[in-house]
């Protein structure tokens, strides 16, 4: 196969420092928000920040930002499959309380 050249993209150090700063800020915000009782919204904020942090790590520290399309697909597939597993399992747990939810 032709074109076997790794993307030798060298990110500037300043970009890494910026990502690091964003990750630290995200952590601080998570901790602060946790002190306020926002009901279910606590989880939304917490997971949004965590997903953003994870995305930053994947895109920049793990170089997916400059990766091939295949790398994007592989990286995404793990999370998609996780959501499939969560979603279908919860389709059981969250509907058990419905009318006639279980066979027993």
């Amino acid at each position: 196969m032709s074109g076997h050249h790794v993307s030798h993209h060298v990110a500037p150090k300043s970009l890494y420092y910026l990502i690091f700063a964003l990750l630290m800020i995200g952590t601080a915000v998570t901790v602060i928000v946790a002190y306020f009782d926002l009901g279910a919204f606590n989880n939304v904020v917490m997971l949004t920040i965590a997903c953003t942090k994870a995305l930053l790590v994947v895109l920049y520290f793990m170089h997916v930002r400059w990766g091939t399309r295949l790398t994007w697909v592989v990286a995404a597939s793990g999370f998609v499959w996780l959501l499939i597993m969560f979603g279908f399992t919860l389709s059981d747990y969250l509907t058990r309380g419905w009318v006639g939810g279980t066979l027993r």
Binding site: T27, V31, A34, N42, M46, I49
Partner: peptide, 11 residues
């Protein structure tokens, strides 16, 4: 970290 350490903070 948030899922284990922070869910009971406001509690």
């Amino acid at each position: 970290f948030p899922l284990l350490y922070l869910i009971g903070r406001h509690y």
